[in-house]
Design a protein around this nucleic acid. Sequence first.
DNA 1: ATGACGATTTACT
DNA 2: GTAAATCGTCATA
Length: 211
Amino acid sequence: MSGAAAVVEALLQRAGRGGRRWSRSDYETDATTLAQRLLGRTLVRIDPETGERLSGVIVETEAYLGVEDKAAHSVGGRRTARNEPMYGPAGTLYVYFTYGMHHCANIVAGAEGEPVAVLLRAIEPVEGIERMRTRRLALRRGRSSSVRVRDLCSGPAKLCQALALDRSLSGASLLDPACPVWVEEGGSPPAACVVRAPRIGVEYAQEWADK
DNA sequence: ATGACGATTTACT
DNA sequence: GTAAATCGTCATA
């Protein structure tokens, strides 16, 4: 395919299925509200290798409430090179690396300078399922058979593997038309949404472990 | 320069 | 339910 054709194809792929790409006002609210607002929306990622759309319906999120939140990277106003994106404007992507092998992705909420964000905990795969499966298998140790669709993106690090989200994307703006990751209106609402559930993996945060 | 520790996942008992 | 995997990040020195 010619260069021009490739560009056209890329544009068509990015156009998607008519879902409106979220803009600033959609993200600019408190973390708890954004966490709920994201449920049922579609997370889209342009595959960095094939250029195809990978997407899924967001079904689990978790709000990180800022300087007061003992479970948050921004607790006490902590500000480092890693979490700097949390201090950026709403709609900024914050991806970090942890446990020596996993990435987790957040979407920044609130006003600029206010370090609040929403962790993407799980999505229900819709487009690019085979690409997701390939990525998930490639990163697994040992030889496992296959990955069931329900297990492809059922965790914050799993969805990052499946969608190829890593630190190179941290700090990017989901509002930027050139950004290969964004949130779309549309997608089917999840069958059920839990509005509040215990937090996971943050037992050290004491009374903030269950906010 | 060094040491302790993860906003997790997976495999195994 | 328990434990290993594995290394960037951050606080301390």
